[in-house]
């Protein structure tokens, strides 16, 4: 964490046209799980401005290495080895330091290590599918994994998810909490996916599509993809009305 003054401003309003709407009938499960009444809007209070933070000290040595963190000694996960790296920023373009990122994904064959996943692709005994890291002082992060496979899912008669990695992101305030997915540049399944298409703006879909980054590859070892993530920015507290004594 940096020595900067604590951040106490309210967050920029969420752009709910940029995010997917709650009701997106092409993604069938949303139909019965989408609130229908108007949200209650109010300016952030301290309950939204504050949030939990997590130190680097809680991380295990292999937490950011999905190739090895579930593998038997001396073995490794099967698949196309990749580095995923990028920067966690806020809407002002400032790096978000000391923020926890958690990621999960299917294995190289498109199978999740989860009781509910019955896809016939086999489990990889050396792949668990979860990892985490904490951003550095300038908001940078990196982890190593295998490229996940696409997989079919029971939304339409023949629907396939593009290859993707799920991200859970903490900033410094509870109102910044975000879960999203990273896609891979060039995947023809992106444009066909009903979950991707819950997002209306093509530019917003681009924002979730990681680019192949040859400069960050590890020669003779791993390809690399660059994926920046943006959290809500904070208003500055300049010129704000303050009650006396506050």
């Amino acid at each position: 964490m940096s020595n900067d003054a604590p951040e106490t401003g309210a967050f920029f309003a969420r752009d709910r046209e940029w995010h997917p709407k709650p009701l997106t009938p092409g993604y069938k499960t949303s139909v019965l799980r989408s609130p229908q009444k108007a949200l209650l809007s109010f300016d952030n209070t301290i309950s939204e401005i504050t949030g939990p933070t997590f130190g680097h000290s809680m991380l295990g040595e292999l937490d950011n290495d999905l190739i090895h963190n579930f593998a038997r000694n001396g073995e490794s996960a099967i698949g196309e080895r990749i580095v995923v790296h990028g920067r966690l920023l806020d809407e002002r373009g400032r790096g978000v330091a000391g923020a926890l990122l958690e990621f999960w994904q299917a294995n190289a064959g498109g199978r999740y290590r989860h009781k509910r996943d019955g896809y016939l692709a086999p489990l990889d005994p050396n792949f668990g599918g979860c990892g985490r890291t904490v951003t550095d002082e300038r908001g940078f992060y990196a982890f190593r994994t295998v490229r996940p496979g696409p997989y079919p899912w029971p939304n339409g008669p023949n629907e396939w998810r593009p290859a993707h990695i799920h991200f859970s992101v903490f900033g410094h305030g509870f109102a910044q909490r975000l879960i999203t997915q990273m896609y891979f540049e060039g995947d023809p399944l992106i444009a066909r996916c009903p979950i991707v298409r819950t997002i209306n703006d093509p530019a917003a879909i681009c924002q979730l599509t990681a680019a192949l980054d040859m400069n960050a590859t590890v020669p003779m070892d791993a390809l690399a993809y660059k994926f920046d993530i943006v959290l809500r920015g904070r208003r500055s507290t300049l010129f704000e009305n303050r009650l006396e004594g506050n």
């Binding site: 969420r14 752009d15 002002r92 989860h114 859970s168």
Partner: peptide, 14 residues
């Protein structure tokens, strides 16, 4: 200003 990364569902395997 940058745009906040759009959300995607947590899915069944969160």
């Amino acid at each position: 200003y940058l745009k906040e990364s759009p959300s995607q569902t947590a899915g069944p395997y969160v």
